[in-house]
Each structure stands twice: as structure tokens, then as C-alpha cells.
Write a protein that binds this DNA or RNA. Structure first.
Lengths: 182, 182
DNA sequence: AAATGCATGTAAGACGTTACATGATTTT
DNA sequence: AAAATCATGTAACGTCTTACATGCATTT
């Protein structure tokens, strides 16, 4: 029988180890400042998954304490590298999921008042402006990174900027309509 | 003690019932052609959640069979309407989550070949082109809908079009770089 | 001395999908 | 007669977050 396919979080971890991240802590820090906006991971997933990947023979860990502080560093096994490369092959239907509460509120906004609708779009814009600022602050460090991370950052910035601009334009448009109605 | 806050799926259901959707089946169909691209829901969530919402007194269901075919139609209670309106108030941090396997592959694409990177971006583009086509096919029906659904559809189309265009441009850019290197 | 950062981990619960099962009605 | 649609539901499983617990090292 074929090996069980990589779990969602398993894929990030394998990739991160391939990029040279060693410990669970290290992976988590890096995820938070690089893939977080399109693929998050929590400690509660990372540490158990590191175990499973090791049990499956895809990574190996060695204890490398820093002083008296426990630390396990991981690297890919040949099987792990193969699994990663297999996963990296293009697929017909790559997973794509969005859960956006702002948009849900916008969808139902006819239930409330026109002012509430505008206020919600404003809140949506402000939230994406914060994300955008975060992404932009990573731009300098990204300049020294390989093309992959640079490209995802570029796309992320473009996407969030697009949302911010749509919100700003829509806020104006709806405000005008409200004024005309008075 | 305050009532338990609405669960994620509870919010869609409450909103859908407010928009006049009656049965679980009806809600599911409508979610699939309207909010699916930013908020999905499955039968496995919907039917148990309808029960919970009824137990919590936010909706009431009545049996209205169509011929010999069982059917339960729901409507909001006053408490349900209040809960919905409370949720509809703007929040500081509305939930926003993305899980995009294409971007993850792009992020790790330095592990593979330049050709593989381009192939993955192409697959990503094609997948978003399919979504875009789906969204565009709903545009006519949306014209008769209230402003909320119209706005989310407009934003969705803009977003997916933005991704498609970025992919197309990046495919060209990377292909040129590859050619220059030869 | 206190705060922050490094480092690992678990338990409980929340959330979600998939696959299956059932059966009536309508369309082809 | 078969296929599609309407309609409801559950069980198993997979996945993920949150909150908590622990303790050393470094910086302030």
C-alpha cells in the first residue's frame, strides 16, 4: 500500500525543514512572518505533526540543546525529500479556502442600515490595511529571500491592496448614494 | 449569564433564514451559489446546527411536507433577529482566514525546477479562472438581488480576476527570465 | 529582579468534511 | 425505466485553536 499522503500541516513542516528551519519553535516563528497570510500553523499542530513525520520516516530529529535548554533539530530524510517533491508537482485542484466574516456581514448587510453597511466596509478596510502594513514591513527581509517567498509576498500585497482599494471606492460610492437619497 | 455566541456556521444559517431561505436543503443550495467562495457550509454542519439554533430559541421550525416528502421550514424568532443584528455590528477584528495550497507550493518552489514553478502558477491560474467563470455566471441572477449579495459578488470577481492577471503576468515574466538564462 | 524570548509539549474542545443511508418527486 | 432533484440526517474521521504548563537563557 502507498504511504499515507501528507497532511495539510505536514506539507508546511516538510517544506520549512527543506528551507533550513530546524526546530518546531523555529518553524512556527517563520510561518508567522512568511506564510501566515495564506497558510497558518499553531504549536498544537506543529509538535504532534513533527512526531508523526518522524514516525513515518520523512524527517529525523536530533537533540541539540542550547546550554541547558532542550532543543530538537530536524532534517529531511531521502523519503521526505521525495514526498515533498511529489507534493510539489502541479495538481488539477489545489486546495483553496477562504473564510471571511467581513464579506459575510456585507452579504447580509441589507438586514441592517446603510450606515451599518458602510461602517462594516470601513472595518473591513482597516483590518486589511493592518495586514497590508504587516506584509509591507516584511518586504526588506524578503529581498534577500529566494524567488518563492518573494513572489508570494508580492501577490499577498497586491491582493490586500486590491481589497483595501475596493473598500475605499465602495465606501465613497455608498456614501454618495446615501446623500442623494436625503 | 449571556447566551452562547453564535457559532461560525450558526451565523450563515441565521442570515440565510433572515433572507427567506426556509429549509436546510434550501440553505445549502443557496450557500453554494452565493457565499461559497468566502464562506462554505456542508450538510454535516447545517442540519445539526439548525437543531442547536432551535434549542437555543433563535429559530423555530415547522413541518411542511411537499406531498409525501418531509420538509421543515424555519423562521427567526425575535431573539434570533436580535442575535443576528448584534452580530452584524462592526467588529475590530473580523475573522479572515485563507488556506491556499497553490501559494504554499509557490512559496516552496525554489526546491523544484523553474519549469515546475511556472507549471504550478499556470495550474493556479486555471483553477482561479474556473472559479471566476462560475462567479461571472451568477452575475445575471445577482442583478435582481439586494445590494449585499451584489457587492460580495463584485468583490469576489475582482479578487479572482486580480489573481488570474497576476498569474498570467508572472508566467510571462518567469518564462522570459528562463529564456534569458539559456 | 523582572520581562522577554527560546523551546517543548498536552488536553479539551470546537469545527469541519466526507461518505453513507434513506426515501419521495419530478424530469427525461 | 432511469436519472436527476428534493429533502433529511448521522457516524467517523480529520483538523485546528485555545489555553495551559514547564523551565532555561538573555536582556533590561
Amino acid at each position: 500500500m502507498p504511504p499515507p499522503p501528507l497532511t495539510p500541516t505536514g506539507r508546511v513542516i516538510l517544506g520549512m525543514i527543506a528551507l533550513g528551519r530546524q526546530s518546531g519553535y523555529d518553524i512556527k516563528q517563520f510561518v508567522d512572518k512568511s506564510t501566515r497570510h495564506f497558510w497558518a500553523a499553531s504549536y498544537g499542530q506543529i509538535y504532534p505533526e513533527l512526531r508523526r513525520l518522524e514516525d513515518a520516516g520523512l524527517i529525523t530529529g536530533q537533540s541539540e540543546p542550547t546550554g541547558g535548554r532542550a532543543r530538537t533539530v530536524y532534517e529531511l530524510t531521502p523519503a521526505g525529500r521525495t514526498a515533498l517533491q511529489d507534493w510539489l508537482e502541479p495538481e488539477a485542484d489545489p486546495m483553496f479556502e477562504v473564510r471571511d466574516e467581513s464579506m459575510l456581514k456585507l452579504f447580509f448587510s441589507d438586514i441592517g442600515t446603510p450606515e451599518q453597511r458602510i461602517a462594516n466596509i470601513r472595518a473591513m478596510r482597516e483590518s486589511h490595511e493592518r495586514t497590508l502594513a504587516q506584509l509591507c514591513s516584511h518586504e526588506e527581509q524578503a529581498a534577500e529571500m529566494p524567488a518563492g517567498p518573494r513572489l508570494t509576498l508580492e501577490l499577498g500585497i497586491g491582493l490586500h491592496r486590491g481589497i483595501v482599494e475596493w473598500c475605499a471606492a465602495t465606501e465613497r460610492r455608498l456614501a454618495e448614494e446615501t446623500n442623494r437619497a436625503d
